[in-house]
Design a protein around this nucleic acid. Structure first.
Lengths: 145, 145
DNA sequence: TAATTAAAAGATGTTTTTGTCTTTTAATTT
DNA sequence: AAATTAAAAGACAAAAACATCTTTTAATTA
């Protein structure tokens, strides 16, 4: 198990892929996205439907339809994608799963985790989707295999 | 979903509980541990069996038996507990779940995650189980509810 | 050495996550 | 308007995670 759920991993990879692929206009279909990020097509379709409903990405049906991103969605932060899929427990939850863990009633790892959680949030919060396009363009980073 | 699996959360809480409860000798039974950390008894039993096999904790059967920790197990690092239960993917895996992600073929979040992973590992690596006893003794931290 | 205690082990059940397949709806194109 | 395209939606299936219950084994105590 990683930091994100499998669903969330697919979501992030797909959003990066769509942003990169449609930066200069156009749409991209689910088949191309799924093969482009190495994910199960129909499962990813569900995820993207959800992200579309939540305005993280855009979609349009019919010929020449597909998924894409406009100025507004390109400006979204990675934290919004993660939160849309996995909720905010990564940013707010107790490391040991204790519901009543808090500043007043901390678990043994409370303070240690505070820093880590903050760092994760900061990283996801400080970068917009489009910020990753350039490296993908240059082939510096990769989304597959 | 948190950073650790539910199994791992129970494991860490139980190990802290056992360490704290048997620091001055003696054993503690599964029932007391389960209720002490608010976890399902039989499920926890499986987890502790596994930890015992892996020498993270000690156990002994029969009257006056139970789980306990000796000098060697008290010196174990939190990272060893986590690795025993969840494996090392938290410390080594790609944030986006890409098998071939590496320094040479990095995913878009590779460098961002490197720092976070290192920080998590460092924290889990730098603390022994017994290090958490004092705060528990003083009632500063809590393992329940 | 028989009874008792408590963990180990085995079998089984439930829920959540992940994945697949089919049908429907909304666009576009001819 | 009919045909075509592609996402949306719904139903279903497999795998993994989480949980429970029962039986067995290894100690201790009387």
């Amino acid at each position: 198990m990683g930091i994100f759920s499998k669903t969330c991993e697919y979501a992030i990879r797909a959003v990066f892929f769509i942003a990169h692929r449609t930066a200069k206009g156009g749409r991209v279909g689910i088949k191309e996205i799924a093969s482009g990020i190495n994910s199960p097509e129909h499962f990813l379709a569900k995820i993207l439907q959800d992200l579309s409903r939540k305005n993280i990405i855009r979609s349009i049906k019919g010929p020449n339809g597909g998924f894409y991103m406009d100025d507004a969605t390109l400006k979204r932060r990675l934290s919004e994608v993660v939160e849309a899929v996995d909720g905010n427990s990564l940013f707010t939850g107790c490391g040991l799963g204790l519901v009543y863990c808090s500043e007043i009633n901390p678990c043994p790892l409370h303070n240690e985790f505070k820093g880590i959680r903050a760092r994760i949030y900061e990283m996801l919060q400080n970068t917009t989707i489009e910020a990753f396009n350039e490296d993908l363009n240059l082939g510096i980073t990769s989304l597959k295999k």
